[in-house]
Write a protein that binds this DNA or RNA. Sequence first.
RNA 1: GCGGGGGUAGCCGAGCUGGACAAAGGCGCAGGACUUAAGAUCCUGUUCCGCAGGGAUACGUGGGUUCAAAUCCCACCCCCCGCACCA
Length: 968
Amino acid sequence: MVAVNNNYGDIEEKWQRRWHEARIFDAEPGVGGGRGGDRGKKFFITVPYPYTSGPLHIGHGRTYTIGDIIARFKRLEGYNVLFPMAFHVTGTPILAIADSIAKGDAEVVARYRDYVSIYEREERVDEIVNSFSDAEAVAKFFAGRIAEDFKRMGYSIDWRRKFNTTEPMYNRFVEWQFKKLYDKGVIKKGKYPITYSIEDGSPVGEDDIEGGDTDKVSIIEHTTIKFKLRDGSFLVASTLRPETIFGVTNLWINPDVRYVKVKVTGDGDEFWIVSKDAAEKLSYQKSGIEILEEIEGGYFVGKVVEEPVAGREVPVLPASFVDPDVGTGVVYSVPAHAPYDYIALEDLKRKRGGLESGIEIEPIKIIEIEGSDYELPAKDICLRMGIESQEDPRLEEATQQIYKEEFYRGVLNDRCGEFAGIKIAEIKDEVKDWLRERNVAGIFYETSRKAVTRGGSKVIVAVLHDQWFIDYKAEWWKELGHKLVSEMTFYPDRYKAYMHDIIDWLALRPCARKRGLGTRFPFDRAWVIESLSDSTIYMALYTIAHLLRALPVESLTESFFDYVFLGRGDAATVANETGVDTEVLDKIRAEFEYWYPNDLRHTAPPHLSNHLAFFLMHHAAIFPPNKWPGSITLNELLIREGRKMSKSKGNVIPLAKVSELYGVDLYRLYCAINADFGAVVNWREQDVDALRRKFNALVELFEDSIDAGVEELKEDEFTHMDRWLLARFYRRLRDSIEQYRAFRIREAGINMFFEMMNDIRYYEQRASVARRKRIVRNVMDAWLIILSPITPHICEEIWHKLHENKAKTFISLERLPAIKEELIDERVEREEEYLTSLVNDIKEILHVARLKPGKIYVYTAEKWKWDVLRAIKDVEDRDKIREAMKFRKDKTTAEFVKRAMKILPLKKKASSKEGASSYFELDEEAVLEREREYLMHEFGCEVEINGDYDPENKRRLAIPLKPAIYVD
RNA sequence: GCGGGGGUAGCCGAGCUGGACAAAGGCGCAGGACUUAAGAUCCUGUUCCGCAGGGAUACGUGGGUUCAAAUCCCACCCCCCGCACCA
């Protein structure tokens, strides 16, 4: 990562400074970004505010850059554009970071030293990192730096509206939101499992867990099943597969582990036997748990219990694979379907030379798998994989495989009573419910893997009994959500259907937590609103944030926001209640009314199933339809050299380094051009270098034409080649505007960068360097403008060099250039196309025949051939061609048509995209006469057009637009 | 398993409302021009065959529809993402 010399740093900073000084991106209702913008035409774009726990990298930058490109393009289109930004601080991660730093966690401190060093001189780093023991300091530091980074990226943001999500103004706003939701009856309370540390006495999130960011810990619901001992107490087994209860043959206990008897108070007292670990976990999940005496596992071996479904008696047997720290430490055995159970039984038979006297255990098969030939699945797979010991790690794999097959393709058989004949995937939950109703089963939560906090204390699952939720299940709400989505635009389009699905899935979502930064939950101040739930409609706050700054926080009451956002109540009453002048109130309301709704939200697909879904649903619930968001665009992620960027790979490039390492315009260009929204951008140094060269060449091209003495070409001196270049340019311009509008920024960029450059290069060869300089001058203004959303700095610079009289204004405030339709000349383009194909044909002949040309003879098609073609060009059906050409019937004609049909795709539909030609007539001879010099120059020999000399009778092979050639 | 995306030349990646497609663009590679040289830049080439502009074989695999398929249909194989409550 060596900084390669780019000379644009000064230019970039200069224009960023001037934009800022002239405040051209500060958006005012009805005023437009500095100049123009009519009142009715506004465009409000948002990109999610960044989370301020650390520096952003070039992957994040892609999304913001695309957002900025869209904002800038909309300005060119004449919209009054609002593009604001704020900072996300709420939630647990920042708090966790501050705690770790306060505790002196070496790893976290080292990481933050790295982060801070991106921005600060070495001698200041320690001091700053030390200050991070305060969460607010973390947020403040990074919010400030990220804002600087964004400015340095040239984003056209109205910074006056900036806020962060822990400031009082925002708290008030979020409270208001929750009151609205509460009024709708969707804020509810209930039980909820969470990850928890007993030692710390608090819930733990992903960021508190050792390795939690890379290896997620989720909560798994086990089913407990009670097996009655003769003394009336229960051995309580836990399982992930309650449907296999019908095939139970025995219980497993680990004889070397300590179990405890637990008194469970419910309808009546019960006594449960579970492992010691499980008992502790249970006490955090259920109320009325009392731990009594400890018992060695071995004590139960050989005892008999009654299984709860059919009341069969089954033995308790010893097994070493039973882990007391998973589930209840008691396992029921289904040797027909569980490889562990099967192997443990086999083990036992072998070691003891047979099972204890009087106990016969045969696997009970209860699941049939469609289209498979398993006799006993567990046995078969163990044999096939050669697993013989219960210590074999591959048992896990075997279990997974059997489970997958049985879950999706398996059907319960006749042993399973009323559940027989139904697929496991469909019946599993029913069996679970059935067992629970009969009071033989319960729920036990377990973590998906063993986990400890970063501090080293054990993570378990606890159940909160008064968790607050947002209930998205309400039918009226889903209906509104679907309606809203169907009225929106999504790009890429496929995400629209996906969003409908998400809305269907949405159910209960916990919306408050006991810890973390954020807004106090208004209905229970002990809770804090969870950070995805507090960032759902905050775009509305952007419209007025800068105005709220002038008001005391206390005035931001429910009726204040009701009035501003919903138009409820009247100004006088609200003014009276809040102490805010009616005038101010109405100005604020007017500003909101002007800007809202959010016309476009641009972000990345990982937000679909959470943030964006809540964003849409909350708008649906709180705002009337005319304030619902207009569209959502999403760009995929950015990877580096084919691999995901991550801290652990050490391949992260901070956004802050972009200007120094690559140059901002180059980065923006790369993001725009490397991939469409729907595809991953691969950041490859090699490709970046290549793009840099191209980009520099373009800049040079412009510079060349600004040189003194270079004048644009006048219309009366246009040659064929001039007209060709202009036709190409305006055609591309027209296309690229359409592409921008459709968010196909990549295509627009490729069109105006690469392809236009290629055209220019071709023009230069056909014409001259001097003339190229002049013609570029003809299109330069329009060209710079259309490129400016992507590479605003360099465009601004050149544009000002070009227009010294425009020192006071900016290309960023220009309008889309006019498309000079009259210059888009198909004939001129066809002629050139015709010529290049002739040149290529001649080249190929020279190559294949290994000739050095003495003289080249070109013969164009005779008039009658054109007549024939004209007659048959629109004839769809082959059979009718004969009829169409009946005016000329002879062998020569037939031969010609055969050849022509093969070579010319006459019937291509006229509607096909441009460039693909359909039938077109040219005066070939005139074109060739005109370009004879060029051909002679190209091949370094005489060229004769339609001469009489034709020694090999080539002329007869000529086809319209494909002349015959003879080389001497 | 369900839902979504995808499998195209040495690589990345367009095309995929069927027809100038041997397949844009880029990278890489080879040759040439320029240069004292390197770099940069610009040309040319980059499946195979061909001493006349042509032909053959190609777009995950196998079938099918069509005058014509990378593009449409069917089946199969493989890869990626999501199936949540985590910012």
